[in-house]
Structure formats: C-alpha cells, structure tokens
C-alpha cells in the first residue's frame, strides 16, 4: 500500500523520505471496526485523492472478506507519533509499577467487556 517513496511521515520516522511525487495521492491510514469489535483497529494504509475516495478505497482494499462494519480514515500526515528514541523515558518508568494493573480485583460478570 505505502511505499517509502510516497510516504508523508517525514516528521516521525527515522528513515529519510523523499518529497512525495507531485502526482501522488496523499497517504491515508485506515481503521476498521470489525463485526464483533468494540473499537476501530488500524489495518493498513492506502493512497487516495480525498477523504471520501479514501473511504471507498478502504472498502475495496480492506473489507473484501466481510471484515468491517465501520471505516475511519485519517490522512497520515495528520497523525502525530511518538519518536522511537524516546522509548526509554516514555515507557520504562511504568515497568516496575505492577500495582497500576487492575489484576488485584475480581471483576463482576455483570460488568461485561472492559
């Protein structure tokens, strides 16, 4: 779907990207909510001229096997992402704080999916 040549993730990936070719459509990230899913999941990306055609393309590329009931698309350049080199400061501090996991409680059946 996405080739490095045409990607627009300049700000967030370590790999250098060339400028998108002028004739290339923008890159869109696709999120689909499945038949039994509660939330939209990222399934991949594609190119499209605008949001409406991105949704149509997503329908054709990612829901051919009856996967989805709802589609979200967002232009890839609109996504702000954390930087891989900040991994340590961002995530390591939570490693030793096991009490933050809600594993010490019995969850009543009535609560349902969480």
């Amino acid at each position: 779907m996405s080739s490095p040549e045409s990607g627009s993730y300049d700000a967030t990936e370590a790999a250098p990207h060339g400028k998108p070719r002028a004739i290339e459509w923008p890159l869109w990230e696709v999120f689909i909510r499945g038949q039994h899913g509660l939330s939209h999941r990222h399934v991949g990306s594609l190119h499209a001229a605008d949001a409406q055609s991105a949704i149509k393309n997503a329908r054709d590329v990612y829901t051919r096997r009856n996967e989805g009931v709802s589609i979200w698309v967002v232009e890839a350049s609109a996504i702000a992402a954390s930087r891989p080199e900040e991994k340590g400061p961002l995530y390591d501090p939570s490693n030793d704080k096991v009490y933050r996991h809600p594993t010490f409680f019995d969850i009543p059946d009535d609560v349902g999916a969480m």
Binding site: M1, W25, L46, H47, A48, K56, N57, D60, V61, R64
Partner: peptide, 8 residues
C-alpha cells in the same frame, strides 16, 4: 493505474 483502483 494504482493498486487501489486495481482492487476496486
């Protein structure tokens, strides 16, 4: 011309 149209 493009993959998306090909699949469509």
């Amino acid at each position: 011309p493009v993959l998306e149209e090909d699949i469509a």
